[in-house]
Amino acid sequence: MSDWLQILLYIQIGLVVFCLIRVIKGPTVADRMVGIDIFGVLVVGICAILAIQTGKTFIIDIGIAWIILSFIGTLTLAKYLSGKNLNE
């Protein structure tokens, strides 16, 4: 069980590289934003696998906080992209 979890954890961490490829290569600003958004969701998966490996509760706390902050960041970037000021 724990060997399998270790392998899956490494695969999940390796997936972050795909997002970074898109962030570096992306021809437009929106491509880079998609990469950052998906990066945030993948990190939540990493937190969940770590939690199931160690059995500690607080790692899920970190995951939920990460979801919330990533959501607010995505909305800010999307609002900037649609050409409005932040206060209207």
Binding site: F58, D61, A65, I68, L69, I72, L75, T76, K79, L86
Partner: peptide
């Protein structure tokens, strides 16, 4: 009791106000 505390919690609390200003 858990990791976090004043600084991290304050950053999440201000996220609620920022979300309202954005939306």
């Amino acid at each position: 009791l858990t990791p976090g505390g004043g600084f991290a919690g304050g950053a999440i609390i201000v996220g609620a106000f920022a979300l309202i200003i954005l939306a």
